[in-house]
Amino acid sequence: MKEKHGMTLIVRTITRISVWLIFLYGFYIIFHGHLTPGGGFAGGVILALALLNYMLAYGREKTENWININLLHDMESASAILFLIVGILGIAISGSFLANWLSGGKLFALFSSGTIPILNIIIGIKVCAGLFFVVWTLSIFHIEEEAEE
């Protein structure tokens, strides 16, 4: 039953020290999605890995105390709806779905290319929550299975 309570102190300490850095890198990748390789999906995966890193090191109960699982679940579906809303605003403003209705800005600047950074952030949240829940759900199976035996 050791997995339920996480790993040894060494792993936990390293996770504790490094988790903010992983988060930061994920946000960096998401914010620069329209300028450099990466973007919403890659950054979202990194964010999810930061959460999973914590979950593997500290176990499920502590993760439940740390982040609000229900809120994350709601954020996952809300981000999908937000994506569609941005798309529908494209219909309302520019006449076709997902049209870029914000101004393009200056080339190579951070705040440029209209709705694409917004969509990247939305996708990042969605992927982060989705990927986290994939592993989270699979680990629920694991515990149930042990309980059955």
Binding site: R16, I17, V19, W20, F23, L24, F27, F31, A109, L110
Partner: peptide, 24 residues
């Protein structure tokens, strides 16, 4: 030097602090 990057950096740092600030 880029003011846009500084704004984005402050935003990112704030989110990171809210999420994982108390752990260090």
């Amino acid at each position: 030097t880029d003011y846009q990057e500084i704004i984005a950096g402050i935003a990112a740092a704030l989110i990171v602090t809210l999420l994982a600030g108390g752990l260090l």
